[in-house]
Structure formats: C-alpha cells, structure tokens
Design a protein around this nucleic acid. Structure first.
Lengths: 195, 195
DNA sequence: GTCTATACCTCGATAGAC
DNA sequence: GTCTATCGAGGTATAGAC
C-alpha cells in the first residue's frame, strides 16, 4: 500500500517529530497547531499525546533537537568540503542559501523562530535552543582550530560565523533573496583569512 | 490624576501601537493577544478596533513600523558616535548589548520574531519587515560611504553588518549573554578597517 | 472615542472504545 | 498504539449602549 504522506516509511513518533520540526522552523511554535502537526505526520491526535504526554512543549523540545541535528549535518558538509577553513565556512553559507532558495525561503535555521518566541518564557525551550546554537558554534570552532587558528581566536570567530550566518539567513528569508548569505560568505572568508 | 500606565501622556492610539510593538518584539506576533495589548496600553478592546479596523494584522504592521523607527534611532546614535566608521559600527553592537542586558534580554530587534513567523505567509507583514531591514541597511551603507568606503563595498558591508548584528542579538538573547555582540563588535570593526 | 458583553471559533488537552 | 468525540479555555472580532 502506498501512503499519502511523505515519511510513511518512518515510525509514527518520528513522523510526528519531523512534521513538528518542519512547521516550527517555518512559522514558529505559536502558529503551529498540534492538530496540524498530526495531520502533516499522517497521525492522529491520540498518537501525538501517546508519544508526548507532556503536550506541545515536550514535542517542541524534541522537534528542536531533531532540527538541530539536521542543521549540524549541513554545517559538517560545508566545513568538510575543503581544506581551506575560510572557504569551508563560505561553503556553509552557500549551502544555506541554496537550501533556502530550494524551499521557497522556508527551510532555514530550525530554532530561530521558536527561540525568539520564548526568550525568558520557557526554560526547556530556551535551553534546547541554546544547546543547538552551542553545538553549532563548537563544530565551527573545532574546524577552525584544526586549521591552525589559535583556540581562543577560533572560538570567537566561530561565534561571529554563527551570528552572521543566522542574521544573513533572516535577511535572506525576509527579502526572498540569496544576496545576504552570498555577501556573508565573502566577508566571513575574509575575516577568517586574516588569522 | 495619575494613571496606572506608563505611557499615559500619549494618546490612545499611540499607546496601543507602543504596547503592541513591545510585546511583539519580546514574544512575536502569535503569542501576543489583542486583549493583552489593550490592557498594557491602558485601553479597551473597543478602542483597539476603533483605531485598527483591520484587526491584529493591521495593528502589527503599524507596530513593526514604530519599532523600526526606534531601532533606527539606536543605530543613528551609534553611527554618529565617532568619526571612525569601524568604531561607529562597533558602538552600535555595544548599544544593542547594553539595551538587551538592561531589559533582561527582551528588547532586541523589533521585527525579527514577528518576521520569522510570517515568511511567505503575509505580504503585508513581510513587506513591513523588509522595509525595516532595508532602512537600517541603507543607514549603515550611507555612513560607511561617507567615511570614504567605495559605495558598492559600503552597501555589501552594510548588509553583513546588519546580518551579524541581527544574528549576534539572537545568540545573546538565547544564551542570556552579551558575549556574541561584544565579539561581533570587534570582528565587524576589523572587517570595516580592511577597506 | 470608550466601554461592556458576547458571538464564534480554534486551541491544547482528555476520555475511552477499539 | 490508534482512533473519534468532546471538553474547557482563550483567541479574534463584533454589537451596540453611552
């Protein structure tokens, strides 16, 4: 039998988390209803509460972790694409730009929209967001340090790399243009080469 | 008579817009209820719909424009603080960090949270967000060009300045730390000095 | 212009059969 | 584990007196 839903091969719990992650990435937490998540996942409301008795917030935390891993994969791909660390970071920006364009400016950072809705209002969600950002920063920092940049400089650079990528992505999505990430790629590469 | 509300001296319409701008800046559009806006503004629901017959979305557009002007003022203060363009941009980052800390990481970019909720879902709100970001970028570009940086370079630099400030602010808010903006200040200054 | 009351709807969450 | 039916709360928006 062929299912009407894209992720039919995965188990129900996974499909629910994926649907939640996608919707929250695109429109944030508050605009995303549980009924819609269930429908997109090809599951019923009962199943959602079966797997996530803690309700929407518990599911959201799981969705943030899931999306965080996907973004980690994208970063790893970019960072491992070449020996030159400056070029590797630029490649991350290009990968993000391409992913955004291919998804009609929908598939960006999986935590930004939700994180901004909950600053100071939900420890669980804020912590999950902080862990995601921290993990990405660490990934970049390790890559830069491996290229010979002093560890402290690498950590600071990684922070700015992440800041710039996040902000450029916001600008890209709002203006429906790849330009901010393309420009960020050039500037970040220049910044890194200065070390 | 002394009012219980902070903006009692302003007219009702202005108080409503201010309250909406503040709430949307802190938690986005969807989490912000009209009843709460009215209460914070010291107005009634009837007044809100009297001034904004188009409802919540019409009010949101006005709130974004209002917040946009406030952020423009902050940028102008930073950009005019010194002759050195690199130092001026760094000062913007420091002003943002200070504002964030003073508000318990609440008062950041007035459009980011709302904009991310509406990418591709509301032309009116997306346009208002795009206009705000474009205005800020133009402000920075003009300042850099005035310092002698070639116009095309200034425009690209302004784009990255804005990207980095926006992203660093996200990181600051999520991690409840000034560090990302402090680091961004240093890196942006270095990037600008290279021209 | 301001206010109260309320209509109408959708939300998150629950209950209980299967 | 999955499903349907439904509850209560809270949302936006409206009506109409003042």
């Amino acid at each position: 039998m062929v299912s009407a839903h894209p992720d039919a091969q995965a188990d129900t719990r996974t499909r629910i988390v994926r649907a939640a992650a996608t919707l929250m990435q695109r429109q944030g937490y508050e605009a995303t209803g549980i009924k819609r998540i269930a429908a997109d996942a090809g599951a019923t409301l009962g199943s959602v509460y079966h797997f996530f008795p803690g309700g929407k917030q518990e599911l959201a935390v799981e969705a943030l972790r899931y999306g965080s891993q996907e973004f980690t994969d994208l970063l790893r791909t970019g960072l491992d694409s070449t020996d030159d660390p400056a070029e590797a970071v630029a490649e991350c920006a290009r990968l993000m730009a391409q992913t955004l364009r291919d998804s009609d400016w929908s598939d960006g950072c999986p935590v930004a929209a939700t994180a901004l809705e909950f600053i100071g209002r939900s420890p669980a969600i804020q912590l999950a967001s902080e862990e995601a950002l921290g993990q990405w920063r660490e990934l970049v920092a390790v890559r830069l340090a491996a290229a010979g940049i002093p560890v402290d400089d690498a950590r600071d650079l990684a922070c700015t790399v992440l800041s710039t990528l996040e902000g450029a992505e916001l600008l890209c999505r709002v203006s429906a243009s790849e330009q901010p990430l393309r420009i960020a790629a050039r500037h970040l590469a220049r910044l890194i080469r200065a070390y």
